[in-house]
Amino acid sequence: MAEQYDWAAIARNPKYLELKRRKRIFLFGWWIASSIYYFLLAILAAFAPELFKIKVIGVINFGYVFILSEFVMCIIVALYYTHVANKDFDRMTNELIESLHQGGAI
């Protein structure tokens, strides 16, 4: 690698700290939230089977709809993350790198 970075200095850069904070809250927040929804399926199926038997449309019951909703949840979380990452995280990263260039850190 031809270029040398001062990693410790970047790690103290306010722009970097803001990016790190926002990423961390977003990523772990959504990971935990989606995990709760994911494990809810196995837990409810085991401990509240009556709930799964409630018919929603025709013979299709809550259990089936719940399983489908898991897939929908995964896709929504993935799309939302991609949207935020493309829009905010990438922009913040580029701004940070630009400010480093201007500051002569690179």
Binding site: W7, A11, Y16, K23, T93
Partner: peptide, 15 residues
Amino acid sequence: DELEVRQITGLGVSK
């Protein structure tokens, strides 16, 4: 610090 900056920003990897 170095690892964290790299993993968050992707600095140093694109090259």
